[in-house]
Simulated scan of single mutants.
Amino acid sequence: MKPKDEGKIAEIYAATLALVKEQGLAGITMSMIAKKAGFATGTVYIYFANKEELLVKLFDKCIDDYTNNYFAGYNPADPFKVAFHTIWMNMLRYSIEHFDEQVFIEQCFHSPFISDETRKETKDRLMPWRELIERGKKEKLIKQHDASWIMLFVRGGVKDLVKHCTYHQLKITTEFKEAMFEMCWDGIKD
């Protein structure tokens, strides 16, 4: 049996991400994905049995990339604000550089294609961030709200910031990033 071509899989994934951004998750078909990737529809079926399998595998890949990037350079032993800054900047950088993936993750997470078990596993991958938030609460550096609400507040702000800047083609400078971080910090600090 001939091994699967990882390059073709990457092209299928890229086509899927672009189509989801353009048309939404429900509006795409395997034939649309094939056409966008420049392949015959049968070629896509060599790699994925159906749309659901394709979406689940792409979701897993995107979540792996996303969570690995979340914690790049993160040291849980750093002072709280330094560690929080690292994660926040990683979140922002990844969301800017991988906007299509962010759109895809958001749509998939709330779709019937992703199981409750996968949703839980996704949340579990973010446990170091949750632990950091709990540490900040324990050290009385941030508000004493449930960690999930703090994480939602922070992540929501980053997502909306990136969406707004992307759709309005606004430049995100280093100074702007730091100013946005300080606004976020002001929103959670105790």
Results as ranks from 00 to 15, higher is better:
Q102S: 08
P112L: 14
A14D: 11
T166R: 11
E139C: 00
E6A: 12
H164T: 12
K61V: 00
E139S: 06
W149N: 07
R155S: 15
Y45A: 04
K51L: 08
D146R: 13
K163M: 07
E134F: 04
G73C: 01
V56W: 07
D65Q: 11
K36V: 05
E22A: 14
T173G: 06
K2L: 14
I63W: 06
Q169D: 14
I150Y: 04
L58D: 00
A10M: 07
R119T: 08
A40D: 13
D5T: 12
W149D: 07
V44W: 07
C184I: 13
A77K: 05
T166Y: 13
A14M: 01
G27C: 05
L55Y: 15
A14E: 13
F153Y: 14
E182W: 09
I33F: 09
N69A: 11
D5C: 10
N75V: 01
K61C: 02
F153L: 12
E6V: 08
E97Q: 15
K140L: 01
C184V: 12
I114Q: 13
V158T: 07
S115Q: 11
E134T: 04
Q23G: 01
E22L: 05
V56T: 11
T86H: 03
K120Y: 12
F104S: 05
G38S: 09
Q102L: 09
R125E: 13
L170M: 14
D78G: 00
H168C: 05
A83L: 01
T67P: 02
L17I: 00
M32E: 12
P128A: 02
D5W: 07
K140C: 01
E182V: 08
I87D: 04
V44A: 15
E52V: 05
T166N: 12
D78M: 03
H168R: 14
F153W: 03
E6F: 06
T67E: 12
L19V: 05
F71Q: 02
I150A: 07
I172V: 15
K4N: 10
N68G: 14
N90S: 09
E11P: 03
K189T: 10
N68L: 08
M183E: 10
F59Y: 15
I87T: 06
I46D: 13
E53H: 11
L132H: 01
P128Q: 06
I63A: 15
F176H: 10
C108F: 10
A77E: 09
L132W: 01
A49S: 09
A26E: 15
E131D: 09
F39K: 09
E117F: 08
P3A: 13
D65T: 06
F39S: 12
K177Y: 00
Y74Q: 00
D78S: 03
L55V: 06
K143G: 03
N69R: 07
N90E: 09
P76M: 02
A34C: 10
I63N: 14
